[in-house]
């Protein structure tokens, strides 16, 4: 593909890509997409959240997984960063801790695509140090 440098190039690229995109567009109602939220506070970033986010985006593009990646703030699980929250349509959100690139790929392949549960889930009833009375 030619290099895209200007807004004009982008306009041309859009026309070429449009029909390919249309297929994906149909499944683009937010409720039908898997939502993956990467915790991007200081603790997350310092422990590699950006690498995880890049890996997720690359894998989603490569395997055409119907998912979007968003970012969130600190959830209080600083000890387990990078953390990601995965919300599969119709299921409760699940938070995975200590995610690196390899685990991010595993989560997409096994949990998102095949629905298998994986180790390293932070239970929702876990209390952070500030919540403990």
């Amino acid at each position: 593909m030619n290099k895209i440098k200007s807004l004009d190039d982008l306009r041309k690229m859009k026309q070429n890509l449009e029909h390919e995109m249309n297929i994906r567009e149909k499944s683009n109602e937010p409720e039908s997409l898997v939502q993956i939220r990467v915790a991007m506070a200081t603790c997350g970033i310092a422990s590699g959240a950006r690498t995880v986010m890049n890996t997720l985006v690359e894998k989603i593009e490569k395997d055409k997984i119907p998912a979007v990646v968003t970012q969130g703030g600190c959830m209080g699980y600083c000890y387990a960063e990078p953390t990601i929250e995965v919300k599969v349509p119709g299921k409760d959100p699940v938070v995975f801790g200590n995610v690196d690139s390899q685990r991010a790929i595993d989560i997409l392949e096994k949990y998102v695509v095949n629905g298998e549960l994986l180790e390293g889930i932070i239970p929702t009833n876990y209390q952070t140090i500030n919540e403990k009375k």
């Binding site: 895209i4 982008l10 890509l17 995109m21 567009e25 985006v57 979007v68 968003t70």
Partner: peptide
């Protein structure tokens, strides 16, 4: 320019980053 194609589309992220 992108119209209906959202910024969170994985291909768009790559294309715009390269741009």
């Amino acid at each position: 320019i992108l119209g209906d194609i959202p910024f969170n589309d994985a291909s768009i992220i790559r294309i715009l980053t390269d741009m």
